[in-house]
Design a protein around this nucleic acid. Structure first.
Lengths: 263, 263
DNA sequence: ATTTTTATATTTGTCAAACCTTTTGCGTTT
DNA sequence: AAACGCAAAAGGTTTGACAAATATAAAAAT
């Protein structure tokens, strides 16, 4: 019974205005375990007690414990397996999983129209230009190869719009990858994966492929020659050149507003 | 009974190798509802059926439904209230909530040592210098006031290390805020909130306050005068100047490795 | 003796039915 | 008209049980 507040009687203690209760029992338990993980009191890959044991120790029921564990699992902090050697384990922080999390969050915001197109274009232009600078400085030959591979693919005329967009995303990712900076790659994920597809799916219906490919090729060339200023300027021009096309494409899209009850 | 796969007997259907099941029932339900929200089939602030009703429609039990809803609530997609007018509602995508999500993800990665200090310093220097440029271009007088307020606070000698660090974070946030670019602010949250505290809590034990304050003041002045190049250079120098101090501080910290069973 | 099969115990996953707590709204009383 | 109180609705929690998966040990077959 770890001090959780359940079925609290209104103890007539005068002047006790500070946070009566933080939330549901499940939330309190989730917060406790999360804190234990974040503070390192629970090591990576360490096994937590069984759900029944947790329920007993916290003085709550197993379904409530499970609700708490589900929340933590949704945050990629723990994972569960069945069986005798199963149980709940602390998950090693995974770069991909974390990147997916922030991408989802960014995609949601973009999809719900919380950002202006102009803002997105400006943010892309600036940050990707910066990445170009660092890429020109730190790129390896493998990075150049990765870019070349996408360029080759993009020149295939039979490529569907969707596949072309996907290749475009991979090209920009390759540029970010070439910076060799982990934290920057992590941050740029949100840009690359959420901002680019939204803008591109609108644009490529208007057949701007040739121009895009040309810009990509020049960018790669500048990075190959370690010409920071040129690479950055090219990228910024490439991205911000979309603005006009985007505004036009957006006008078409305003009319599509589906709605339907499914659940 | 919406086609969920529960208690599946090994139906002897030959050649049905494709994804027998996606996961637990709770996960399947969570995925279904999430997709409905992300695709706009469930509008913002729309009320979902009651938990009992959902259980009936999906053909599963209420605890399982609740596990699914908890997952979605943890992702800030829904919220629940009790009472007759209560229920489960689709949450409007919130910038702060999303920012908190990515901050948590980044903090976790940093805390678990998935990034090198050098990388973090470099990423901070580059991106914050970029923000300085845009801040110098777009800042309002209110932005300058916000910076000045933190500077004033930082000059208080009696400030605790923790409070000084918090003010430092707010100063850097004010710079990002001054860019006036929503997506950029969103992305930079992860830097500001997770990368800065980690580095600063190490540094300020070594009493670098005066130098920090001086750098802040010069940065603000350059932004006020709309001098992009100077502001960017100052910020980059300010951030990357920490590297040596950081390496030193890190050496001290290597010895602290607490471990203890609490859950 | 080695491999394969079977049994068993353990742990998560799911279910059912109830009860508790909070909140709203209505109806009664003052 | 305002205040109070009650009842209904919905999420929050509990209890106890069973189902499914899986690692380990035991047994059987080769």
């Amino acid at each position: 019974m770890l001090g959780l507040i359940g079925r609290r009687g209104k103890s007539a203690m005068a002047l006790q205005y500070d946070e009566i209760v933080r939330g549901s029992l499940a939330k309190q338990v989730a917060d406790l375990i999360r804190a234990a993980i974040l503070e390192g009191r629970l090591q990576v890959d360490e096994r937590l007690p069984t759900e029944e044991e947790l329920a007993k120790r916290f003085g709550i029921s197993r379904p409530t414990v499970r609700e708490a564990l589900k929340v933590l699992a949704a945050q990629n902090l723990i994972r569960s397996r069945r069986g005798p050697a199963g149980g709940t384990f602390v998950t090693r922080p995974d770069l991909d999983a974390a990147a997916r999390t922030i991408t989802d969050a960014a995609t949601l915001l973009v999809g719900m129209g919380r950002f202006e197109i102009d803002e997105i274009v400006a943010a892309r232009g600036q940050t990707e230009a910066l990445c170009c600078r660092l890429a020109a400085r730190n790129r390896t030959d493998e990075d150049l190869d990765a870019m070349a591979q996408e360029l080759l693919l993009q020149q295939d005329e039979t490529l569907s719009d969707e596949d072309f967009c996907a290749s475009d995303v991979r090209f920009h990712r390759a540029v970010v990858q070439a910076t060799g900076n982990g934290p920057l790659q992590f941050i740029m994920h949100a840009m690359i994966e959420s901002f680019i597809p939204i803008t591109n799916m609108l644009i490529y219906r208007h057949h701007e492929r040739r121009r895009t490919i040309g810009a990509h090729q020049r960018i790669r060339m500048a990075i190959a020659e370690r010409d920071e200023d040129t690479a950055a300027a090219l990228m910024q021009h490439h991205v911000e050149g979309m603005r006009a096309v985007l505004d036009q494409a957006l006008a078409h899209r305003r009319l599509e507003k589906p709605g339907g009850e499914t659940i």
